[in-house]
């Protein structure tokens, strides 16, 4: 646990924790509102948004990518709502039509255009490349207070920390209205809360978390973290505050254990190469959920 750890593993783990917590936080409310699959839909439609942004600007800089992804997310929400109303189609099916079509469009655009010069492909979009976000300038724990070394931090870390900050601030600021409108929308509206814009804001904040995370770790962690930690936390308690705290703990645990298992686990059993960290983090979050579903004190309805 020395210099090598700081340079090769510390930053990916920190980024993983930021991603996981940033997704798990809004996930709590989406889960309670029965909108758990919004995270799934958002992370699929981000792909065409990013591809279109790349085709328009010719770069993979963060600004255009984020704009493209956000635009695609908004377009998807509008399209889902339009199909649901016009065709009187159940929202799950409307969602299925929109996100598969947009993802398919994104894949074809990607395959048709020349992206060989940049790091943009379908596999990367699905499971990212957490392992590559290493901190080459680090020489040991001392680098954490060394300004020149800190300047070499992978850009994903401050970006993800910022996203986490935005998400956290939103949840903290709107805690009471969010809780009220989640549990009793009619009552919240009676108090004069504007539940419609609030619900949309929650989706937008989720999209911010998803888009920021997408670039660093791919969509699979995003979907897992929107759902698994909050779902496991839901089995632990009946109080919203406690549930959110549990979900943050579970998310961070999944990120750390998952990364360590992916990076070092194969070495322990004698294999030479590591396995996908994104996949392993999702797997660990699933194991946490399974344990909670089997042994959580509040796992059944009405307990």
């Amino acid at each position: 646990m020395g210099a090598e750890f700081v340079a090769l593993s510390l930053t990916p783990i920190l980024i993983g924790v930021c991603v996981s917590v940033a997704c798990a936080l809004p996930g709590n409310f989406l889960l309670l509102r029965r909108q758990a699959l919004i995270g799934d839909a958002i992370s699929h439609v981000v792909l065409p948004g990013i591809v279109v942004a790349f085709l328009l600007t010719g770069t993979v800089r963060t600004g255009p990518m984020l704009l493209g992804a956000a635009g695609a997310a908004v377009l998807a929400v509008i399209a889902i709502e339009a199909i649901r109303r016009l065709g009187r189609i159940e929202s799950g099916a409307a969602m299925g039509v929109v996100f598969t079509a947009m993802f398919a469009g994104g894949v074809l655009l990607l395959e048709r255009s020349d992206t060989s010069s940049v790091h943009l492909d379908v596999e990367h979009a699905l499971y990212g490349n957490l392992e590559s976000l290493i901190w080459l300038d680090a020489t040991g724990w001392g680098s954490l207070i060394d300004a020149t070394a800190l300047a070499g931090l992978p850009v994903e870390l401050p970006r993800m920390a910022l996203a986490l900050l935005v998400v956290g601030a939103f949840i903290a600021l709107f805690w009471r209205p969010l809780a009220l409108s989640t549990f009793d929308e009619g009552f919240a509206r009676g108090l004069g809360l504007r539940t419609g814009p609030l619900g949309l804001a929650l989706v937008v904040v989720s999209a911010i978390a998803a888009v920021a995370a997408f670039d660093a770790v791919g969509s699979i962690i995003v979907i897992a973290m929107f759902i698994c930690p909050p779902a496991a936390a839901r089995m632990m308690t009946n109080r919203l505050g406690h549930q959110v705290a549990w979900s943050m703990l579970f998310a961070a645990l999944a990120a750390i254990i998952g990364y360590v298992l992916a990076g070092y686990g194969p070495l322990w059993i004698g294999a030479s190469a590591s396995v996908s960290a994104a996949g392993m983090i999702a797997t660990v979050s699933g194991i946490i959920l399974a344990v909670a579903a089997i042994a959580g004190p509040h796992r059944t309805r009405g307990s």
Partner: peptide, 8 residues
Amino acid sequence: SVFFGFGI
């Protein structure tokens, strides 16, 4: 998400 992650 979990099965897909494990599959990866």
